[in-house]
Design a protein around this nucleic acid. Sequence first.
DNA 1: AAAAAAT
Length: 453
Amino acid sequence: MFTEISLNPRLLLGLEKLAISEPTEVQSAVLPLALAGKDVQVCAETGSGKTLAYLLPLLTRLLDNEARPNSGTRALILLPTRELANQVHKVCKLFSEFVRPDSGLICGGEEFRYQASLLRKNPEIVIATPGRLVDHLKRGTCDLKSLEFLVLDEADRMLDMGFAEDMDIIISACNTERQTMMLSATLRHEGVGRVARKMLKEPAEITTRAIEEQHDLIVQQRILADDPAHKDRLLVWLLANETFEKAIVFANKRSEVERLSEFVRRHREGVAMLHGEMSQDDRRYVMQMVREGRRPILIATDVAARGLDVEGMDLVINYDLARKADEYVHRIGRTGRAGKAGLAISLIMPYEWNLKASIERTLQMMMQPRQIDGLVAAYKGPKKLKSSGKAAGTKKKKDSKKDGAKKDARKKSSEPRRVGKGPATPKPAKRTNLMDGAGFAPVRRQKREPDAE
DNA sequence: AAAAAAT
């Protein structure tokens, strides 16, 4: 019960009105430490309640300690996308109905002057995406010198290369006497890196569920496809035949998202799309339509991969497979939230097989193979080579290679080589036991030095 | 190799 934790009474009242009485596992773990002022570094699965795990202690401490006279921003929450910033802002506002701290939303695509005047009113909490915040810092419209809290939500993302420059500027503008919290479903405590370690003071490392143990609530399937046209047909079939309340379809490129949404629209109503090149008005409108259920199908880039909490989202389709295991985890985590079940289906073309295998290896799971009658791929997965002769058990139909090819023919092949590390010949997937123990973890892929080119 | 985040 939240009442057993020393949250501010006004917050408890708020929770009661929102009909939230039990803390989730991650909330129970984080709250006492965060309330005691500890820095925390949290790994907990998607949909497990990380947002309140930092908002509640943050709000409590702001409420319990009076603001210093004309102090600037007291708490800063950083997020990687505008949609996510907006979502957290909304949750924050749910509580400002009951409690004082005012929060301001600072992200791109909105009018700068309006934000500047908002910041002049000194909201105690600023919720922001990095780019625009840096703008405000440079123009002196935002002051973080008396910051008491810093939260990096989706911390691994905030600390990866794409944000490095902005984060540098932000961090060096922040008060060093502050409490810092980092959270993500894919945070690796060992590997958080120099920047993160510099930001944290003796952090408590909290892992409710390690990455490989997350989500038994999400059924994960894969369907083989021969080519994009085949994927298109599979997608339309799935959207017509699966039962779902809301679905999200991920593609890897904006242009592909645009193409797909146009294509699917020809077969179905209720399709929306989201990617980072759209106007902020369109993005806002789309999210509203999706949340209200008026557009139950959202086709998106990875802008929607992390954090978005949309009621009733019970189907995730990876039209393109995520580029790495972490992003895969976040994508499928749009479903199966807060104890609900979900289904995630990945469409796999031949070139994606190795990626699929590496995701499965990292997450120590196997996607369930699935076939759709009438849309079965000729591709059956990588050929088992080794043992000279025949490819075992797979009937070869659409194989471009000549049948009589001897082994040594490979050497001379002028066909474009697969790019990638390691031996060009894929190892047969011999692992059947996924948890084969101690040997597993320490196996490191060869480290790559930044190769001079 | 691409997405996001600034204008």
